[in-house]
Protein backbone atom coordinates (compact mmCIF):
# COMPACT_ATOMS: atom_id res chain seq x y z
CA UNK A 1 0.00 0.00 0.00
CA UNK A 2 1.28 3.40 -0.92
CA UNK A 3 1.45 5.77 2.00
CA UNK A 4 -0.30 9.12 1.92
CA UNK A 5 2.75 11.26 2.36
CA UNK A 6 5.20 9.09 0.44
CA UNK A 7 7.68 9.50 3.29
CA UNK A 8 6.98 6.26 5.11
CA UNK A 9 9.97 3.93 5.40
CA UNK A 10 9.83 0.18 5.55
CA UNK A 11 11.35 -0.83 8.85
CA UNK A 12 14.48 -2.83 8.31
CA UNK A 13 15.34 -4.75 11.43
CA UNK A 14 17.83 -7.45 10.50
CA UNK A 15 19.36 -9.88 12.94
CA UNK A 16 22.55 -8.61 14.49
CA UNK A 17 25.73 -9.99 13.01
CA UNK A 18 28.27 -11.75 15.21
CA UNK A 19 30.48 -8.68 15.15
CA UNK A 20 27.62 -6.56 16.45
CA UNK A 21 26.63 -9.10 19.06
CA UNK A 22 29.99 -9.38 20.75
CA UNK A 23 29.79 -5.61 21.29
CA UNK A 24 33.53 -5.16 21.68
CA UNK A 25 34.26 -3.64 18.23
CA UNK A 26 31.58 -1.05 18.95
CA UNK A 27 33.21 -0.25 22.31
CA UNK A 28 36.62 0.09 20.68
CA UNK A 29 35.07 2.40 18.09
CA UNK A 30 33.56 4.45 20.89
CA UNK A 31 36.72 4.78 22.92
CA UNK A 32 38.75 5.81 19.88
CA UNK A 33 36.25 8.61 19.28
CA UNK A 34 36.51 9.82 22.87
CA UNK A 35 40.31 9.48 22.70
CA UNK A 36 40.36 11.76 19.68
CA UNK A 37 38.24 14.29 21.58
CA UNK A 38 40.73 14.12 24.45
CA UNK A 39 43.34 15.85 22.30
CA UNK A 40 41.02 18.17 20.45
CA UNK A 41 41.24 21.92 20.83
CA UNK A 42 38.91 22.99 23.60
CA UNK A 43 35.96 25.21 22.79
CA UNK A 44 36.07 27.01 26.14
CA UNK A 45 36.72 30.74 26.28
CA UNK A 46 38.23 31.43 29.73
CA UNK A 47 36.01 34.41 30.38
CA UNK A 48 37.53 37.04 32.62
CA UNK A 49 40.93 36.68 30.92
CA UNK A 50 39.66 36.03 27.42
CA UNK A 51 36.69 37.69 25.87
CA UNK A 52 34.65 36.58 22.94
CA UNK A 53 35.00 38.93 19.98
CA UNK A 54 31.74 40.60 19.13
CA UNK A 55 30.29 40.97 15.68
CA UNK A 56 30.79 44.51 14.30
CA UNK A 57 27.05 45.09 14.38
CA UNK A 58 26.65 43.84 17.97
CA UNK A 59 23.92 45.71 19.81
CA UNK A 60 24.80 46.08 23.46
CA UNK A 61 24.45 48.79 26.11
CA UNK A 62 23.35 52.20 24.88
CA UNK A 63 25.36 55.40 24.95
CA UNK A 64 24.12 58.99 24.78
CA UNK A 65 26.65 60.81 22.65
CA UNK A 66 28.10 64.27 23.11
CA UNK A 67 29.09 66.42 20.18
CA UNK A 68 32.66 67.44 19.41
CA UNK A 69 32.51 70.29 21.92
CA UNK A 70 31.32 68.02 24.67
CA UNK A 71 27.70 69.15 24.68
CA UNK A 72 24.93 66.54 24.89
CA UNK A 73 23.26 65.88 21.56
CA UNK A 74 19.92 64.67 22.94
CA UNK A 75 17.06 67.16 22.71
CA UNK A 76 14.48 65.04 24.49
CA UNK A 77 12.27 64.86 21.42
CA UNK A 78 10.96 61.48 22.55
CA UNK A 79 11.21 59.74 19.17
CA UNK A 80 13.27 56.94 20.66
CA UNK A 81 10.66 56.36 23.34
CA UNK A 82 7.95 56.27 20.67
CA UNK A 83 9.95 53.89 18.51
CA UNK A 84 10.80 51.56 21.38
CA UNK A 85 8.73 48.38 21.04
CA UNK A 86 9.48 47.35 24.59
CA UNK A 87 8.63 50.74 26.08
CA UNK A 88 11.89 50.80 27.94
CA UNK A 89 12.76 54.47 27.50
CA UNK A 90 11.41 57.37 29.57
CA UNK A 91 12.60 60.96 29.72
CA UNK A 92 11.67 64.38 30.94
CA UNK A 93 12.58 67.45 28.93
CA UNK A 94 13.88 70.77 30.26
CA UNK A 95 14.80 74.12 28.79
CA UNK A 96 18.40 75.17 28.55
CA UNK A 97 19.25 78.14 30.78
CA UNK A 98 21.66 80.84 29.59
CA UNK A 99 25.21 79.79 30.40
CA UNK A 100 24.57 76.11 29.82
CA UNK A 101 25.51 76.21 26.10
CA UNK A 102 28.63 74.18 26.85
CA UNK A 103 26.51 71.39 28.34
CA UNK A 104 23.61 71.03 25.94
CA UNK A 105 23.74 71.52 22.18
CA UNK A 106 20.23 72.85 21.63
CA UNK A 107 17.65 74.83 23.60
CA UNK A 108 15.87 71.77 24.89
CA UNK A 109 17.58 68.85 26.65
CA UNK A 110 16.73 65.70 28.60
CA UNK A 111 16.70 66.46 32.29
CA UNK A 112 16.32 62.76 33.02
CA UNK A 113 16.72 59.94 30.58
CA UNK A 114 16.18 56.36 31.73
CA UNK A 115 16.37 53.03 29.96
CA UNK A 116 15.07 49.98 31.75
CA UNK A 117 17.61 47.37 30.72
CA UNK A 118 15.33 44.53 31.78
CA UNK A 119 12.68 45.71 29.32
CA UNK A 120 15.08 46.60 26.54
CA UNK A 121 15.31 44.03 23.77
CA UNK A 122 18.36 45.64 22.14
CA UNK A 123 16.62 45.92 18.79
CA UNK A 124 18.27 49.23 17.91
CA UNK A 125 15.09 50.99 16.83
CA UNK A 126 15.86 53.91 19.16
CA UNK A 127 19.10 54.38 17.34
CA UNK A 128 17.31 54.34 14.00
CA UNK A 129 14.66 56.76 15.18
CA UNK A 130 17.06 59.34 16.62
CA UNK A 131 17.24 62.43 14.38
CA UNK A 132 20.14 63.92 16.33
CA UNK A 133 22.49 60.93 16.28
CA UNK A 134 22.41 61.06 20.05
CA UNK A 135 21.74 57.44 21.03
CA UNK A 136 23.74 54.46 19.85
CA UNK A 137 24.02 50.84 20.87
CA UNK A 138 27.61 49.86 21.66
CA UNK A 139 29.56 46.64 22.07
CA UNK A 140 29.57 47.02 25.85
CA UNK A 141 27.62 44.55 27.99
CA UNK A 142 24.96 45.40 30.52
CA UNK A 143 26.38 43.99 33.73
CA UNK A 144 24.43 41.82 36.14
CA UNK A 145 22.85 43.06 39.33
CA UNK A 146 21.06 41.65 42.37
CA UNK A 147 18.13 44.10 42.35
CA UNK A 148 15.78 45.21 39.63
CA UNK A 149 16.35 48.87 40.48
CA UNK A 150 19.93 48.52 39.37
CA UNK A 151 18.85 47.84 35.82
CA UNK A 152 17.21 51.23 35.32
CA UNK A 153 20.07 53.15 33.78
CA UNK A 154 19.93 56.91 34.14
CA UNK A 155 21.99 59.60 32.52
CA UNK A 156 24.87 58.91 34.89
CA UNK A 157 25.44 55.58 33.16
CA UNK A 158 24.23 56.36 29.67
CA UNK A 159 25.86 59.70 28.78
CA UNK A 160 29.43 59.23 27.67
CA UNK A 161 32.05 60.96 29.81
CA UNK A 162 33.73 63.90 28.14
CA UNK A 163 37.20 62.49 28.67
CA UNK A 164 36.25 58.89 27.85
CA UNK A 165 34.41 58.96 24.54
CA UNK A 166 32.69 55.77 23.37
CA UNK A 167 33.56 54.74 19.84
CA UNK A 168 30.40 54.15 17.80
CA UNK A 169 31.99 54.39 14.37
CA UNK A 170 31.20 50.70 13.84
CA UNK A 171 27.51 51.41 14.28
CA UNK A 172 27.54 54.26 11.77
CA UNK A 173 27.72 52.04 8.75
CA UNK A 174 27.59 53.71 5.32
CA UNK A 175 24.01 52.49 5.04
CA UNK A 176 23.04 54.27 8.22
CA UNK A 177 24.74 57.47 7.19
CA UNK A 178 23.12 57.29 3.75
CA UNK A 179 19.74 56.70 5.30
CA UNK A 180 20.08 59.67 7.57
CA UNK A 181 20.74 61.95 4.62
CA UNK A 182 17.38 61.17 3.01
CA UNK A 183 15.41 64.31 3.63
CA UNK A 184 12.24 62.63 2.43
CA UNK A 185 11.83 61.18 5.93
CA UNK A 186 10.57 63.73 8.35
CA UNK A 187 12.93 62.87 11.18
CA UNK A 188 15.92 63.45 8.92
CA UNK A 189 14.90 67.00 8.04
Amino acid sequence: MKSLTGRAKVLDNPKMTFKERIYLPAIIGGITITLRHLFKRKATIRYPEEKRTFSPVWRGMHVLKRDDNGAERCTACGLCAVACPAEAITMTAAERKPGEEKLYREEKYAATYEINMLRCIFCGLCEEACPKEAIFLTDRLVSTDYARDGFIYGKDKLVEPVDKRVDVSKRQTPNVLEFKKIKHYRHNR
Binding site: H37, L38, K42, A43, R46
Partner: peptide, 10 residues
Protein backbone atom coordinates in the same frame (compact mmCIF):
# COMPACT_ATOMS: atom_id res chain seq x y z
CA UNK B 1 39.52 16.65 33.95
CA UNK B 2 39.04 13.54 31.79
CA UNK B 3 35.32 14.20 31.56
CA UNK B 4 35.97 17.76 30.53
CA UNK B 5 38.63 16.90 27.97
CA UNK B 6 36.49 14.21 26.39
CA UNK B 7 33.68 16.74 26.12
CA UNK B 8 36.01 19.38 24.62
CA UNK B 9 36.00 21.48 27.80
CA UNK B 10 38.90 22.43 30.08
Amino acid sequence: KVAAFIQDRV
